[in-house]
């Protein structure tokens, strides 16, 4: 039971990450591979602020979101000048740069040692003790992210984004400042990813840079593509599928250490097969 709860918490964290990345990749059509950087910024904000500065979970989360927004705004200005595969490559680069900062600015992040002992959040004066309680909190955040995402994609802002994705030049002719739209959605997605990061940090209670590497960004991108581009529900499905996949592999009889690698083989092959036979993903509405 405890283990099922753990899987559910992880699924909701990845659902948050997936839904937010889908806003950028699916709706704005920008192949971003930087998401783990913002995920990490959120996690480090909670880790650093709660452990050594006495902040509460929610205060630290808010600051983490602000930091992620600031970073995303800056990254958005630079990467907004690129398109298609070059955009993806530049976003690779920003992930590596942020990862290097986590790893090397040891006075702040403790580098490869990581930050242990991150406290659990306190909700209305009540400390969350069990994983079951944490699951409720995680689900609340996931639902909030879901609501925000749905609201964005059904608003006129979301429709404009889809327009930009389909034909940016046409929208520019109509007088839309398309670069600004892309930057705004990038910032929003980064803030939501930071929420995922703060949940992760306080749930696991230990963070180190390796969680926020380029591979993690690729993993999040895979779950978004599997679930389906431009479909919020699809990302939730993708997150649950990829979290349960190693368990399924273990159930089939692979030993645990090989199961972890098998997961990578599986998601690599899934990406290849999707690109070959279903480039919009399971429930997607948009093809890369």
């Amino acid at each position: 039971m405890e283990y099922l709860i753990h899987l559910a918490v992880m699924s909701s964290i990845y659902a948050i990450l997936g839904m937010s990345l889908n806003l950028v990749v699916g709706y704005a059509g920008l192949l971003s591979v930087t998401h783990a950087a913002f995920y990490g910024i959120g996690a480090y904000a909670v880790g650093i602020l709660t452990v050594s500065h006495g902040y509460g979970f929610f205060g630290a989360t808010a600051i983490g979101m602000a930091c992620a927004a600031l970073a995303a705004w800056f990254i958005g200005i630079v990467s907004g000048r690129f398109k298609g595969d070059y955009y993806a490559l530049v976003s690779f680069g920003f992930n590596i740069i942020v990862f290097s900062i986590f790893l090397n600015v040891q006075s702040v992040t403790r580098g490869p040692l990581g930050i242990p002992g991150i406290p659990k959040p306190e909700v209305f004066g009540m400390l969350i003790r069990s994983n079951a309680q944490f699951l409720l909190l995680a689900i609340a955040f996931t639902l909030a992210t879901y609501a925000v995402s749905q609201w964005i994609v059904t608003s006129s802002f979301g429709r404009t984004l889809k327009g930009i994705r389909e034909d940016e030049d046409a929208l520019r002719v109509f007088g839309y400042d398309t670069a600004r739209y892309k930057r705004i959605i990038f910032v929003i997605a980064a803030m939501l990813a930071a929420v995922g990061g703060s949940l992760f940090a306080s749930y696991i209670s230990y963070i180190d840079p390796s969680t926020f590497s380029l591979n993690e960004s690729i993993f999040i991108l895979s779950l978004v593509i599997l679930g389906g581009l431009a479909n919020v529900n699809g990302s939730v499905f993708g997150a649950i599928f990829f979290i349960l996949l190693p368990e399924i592999l273990r159930f089939v009889g692979f030993p645990p250490d090989i199961a972890a690698q098998m997961r990578q083989v599986a998601y690599g092959l899934i990406l290849v097969l999707l690109m070959l036979y279903r480039p919009q993903g399971m429930f997607g509405e948009y093809k890369l």
Binding site: L31, Y267, G268, L269, L271
Partner: peptide
């Protein structure tokens, strides 16, 4: 093509 090659890379 790039995403497919990324998948191949991971696998």
């Amino acid at each position: 093509l790039m995403v497919a090659s990324l998948g191949a890379f991971t696998a």
